[in-house]
């Protein structure tokens, strides 16, 4: 799989590139690296739903349900209709 392009010029572009890089690391099961770039994305844009969501998926993949739940809740607090986070959260709480 090709590694996504590095951060572009604008802050928005940076965030998106970082999220894509996080997804790339996640797909390659490099969870620590993925979390690092996603946290960086959140430091640039604290309302980045996809970064919170992907961090949730990473924590869930590592059997850290409490931290996963926290991330999904943050994603939903920004975008309540974000279905992937809602589905994961419902499953985690046993609904």
């Amino acid at each position: 799989m090709a590694r996504p392009a590095r951060a572009g010029g604008s802050p928005g572009g940076n965030v998106q590139d970082l999220v894509e890089m996080g997804e790339f690391y996640f797909l390659n099961q490099k969870y620590a690296e993925a979390a690092k770039v996603l946290q960086k994305a959140l430091s640039l844009d604290p309302r980045c739903v996809k970064a919170y969501y992907t961090l949730g998926v990473i924590h869930e993949s590592k059997n850290e349900p409490d931290r996963a739940r926290e991330m999904y809740e943050k994603a939903l607090s920004i975008q309540p209709d974000f279905k992937p986070a809602r589905d994961h959260l419902d499953r985690l709480v046993g609904m």
């Binding site: 997804e23 996640f26 797909l27 390659n28 969501y53 992907t54 998926v57 869930e60 992937p84």
Partner: peptide
Amino acid sequence: RKIPIITDAGETDF
């Protein structure tokens, strides 16, 4: 084991 995937909707999942 949880295998990372990208869904048809383009979201990360496993």
